[in-house]
Design a protein around this nucleic acid. Structure first.
Length: 304
DNA sequence: ACGCCTACCTGCTTGC
DNA sequence: TGCAAGCAGGTAGGCG
């Protein structure tokens, strides 16, 4: 579910609503939500008293930074949501972890399908990501304190909206891979944060067939792809994400981006560029949507 | 490296 | 109407 734009929206909402708040305690109703290294009981004990300093995002994970430098990671997976409930709000049967805030509100982790995971990490234990595989530890300045981000993310690829995601680097990395371009966009160790919706949208925008292999793309193809990935993600953020059934921001409101998608879940509907019906195929077990005219089928040399 | 499968879960939609 | 199959935004682990 939530991909980069949706997770970014949640993080920004939470930054406004809960930065500065103190967690008084936590009630966990689905223990497997709490991931290694903490057993759920220890997690609840250790989180009590923590004050949220800042909320942001890495890949598809929400990061809550506490004042003592510890970091709570919330991976929403398919149906996870972080919601702020006012004091006295009715209980939510799908809330798997409820954080009571000292001011009487609750921060609720809701997750119908129970795929999401929450972790609590020491500030110094997180190592950087700066650049995908083999990334070196990178010192990050955070207020007056320096600490390292991201052991959890050491296997992740670059953030597509960051300056480090350059065209040259993308050309280099794609040229060494023979996988289908759609599968690579979904591979978090290749690019962080792109999921099934935005992969299809980016390929449509770049006029690339999802079955093209990475090493068949020429420089102009990659240039279009690079721009397209960034554009669809930025548009998603501007519209506060795409909602189908589950996704909502921390304010509980759905995003507006679903209506602006060009291909995702538009099977048989006309392409906005050429009018041909959008087609659906399965690539790497994932449902994939594209325009058969705008995204021409790969020729023999471009296919596995 | 890569593809393919199975798991993890629940709820909604579709087709007979 | 009822019921089963199919579908869903994600990812980890195993096998070949």
């Amino acid at each position: 579910m939530p991909e980069l734009p949706e997770v970014e929206t949640v993080a920004r909402d939470l930054q406004h609503r809960v930065a500065g708040a103190t967690i008084a305690g936590a009630a966990i109703s689905w223990g497997r939500t709490i991931r290694h290294p903490q057993p759920p009981e220890r997690f609840a004990a250790e989180i009590a008293g923590a004050t949220i300093q800042r909320v942001d995002r890495r890949a598809k994970t929400v990061l809550l930074h506490f004042e003592d430098a510890r970091v709570m990671t919330v991976a929403l997976r398919m149906t996870g949501a972080l919601l702020v409930a006012e004091a006295g709000a009715p209980a939510d049967p799908y809330a798997r972890v409820v954080f009571d805030l000292a001011d009487g509100r609750q921060l609720r982790y809701r997750d119908v399908r129970k795929f999401g995971r929450i972790g609590l990490w020491p500030g110094g234990g997180l190592r950087s990501v700066g650049g995908g595989r083999g990334a070196r530890s990178k010192r990050v300045k955070e207020g007056t304190r320096r600490y390292r981000i991201g052991e959890v993310f050491s296997g992740h690829g670059p953030e597509p909206l960051s300056r480090t995601f350059t065209l040259d680097r993308l050309i280099q990395r794609l040229s060494r891979r023979s996988a289908k371009v759609k599968s690579l966009l979904l591979d978090q160790s290749f690019i962080a944060g792109v999921g099934n919706i935005y992969a299809d949208e980016a390929l449509w925008r770049a006029r690339l067939h999802p079955l093209r292999t990475a090493d068949s793309l020429d420089e102009r193809d990659v240039r279009r792809l690079h721009r397209a990935v960034r554009q669809v993600l930025r548009q998603g953020i501007v519209n506060r994400g795409a909602s189908f059934s589950d996704y909502v921001g921390a304010d509980g409101e759905p995003g507006a981006n679903a209506e602006r998608l060009a291909v995702y879940r538009r099977t048989e509907q006309p392409c906005y560029r050429c009018g041909r019906p959008i087609r659906r195929i399965v690539v790497g077990q994932r449902s994939t949507h594209f325009c058969p005219r705008c995204q021409p089928e790969p020729v023999a040399s471009e296919t596995p």
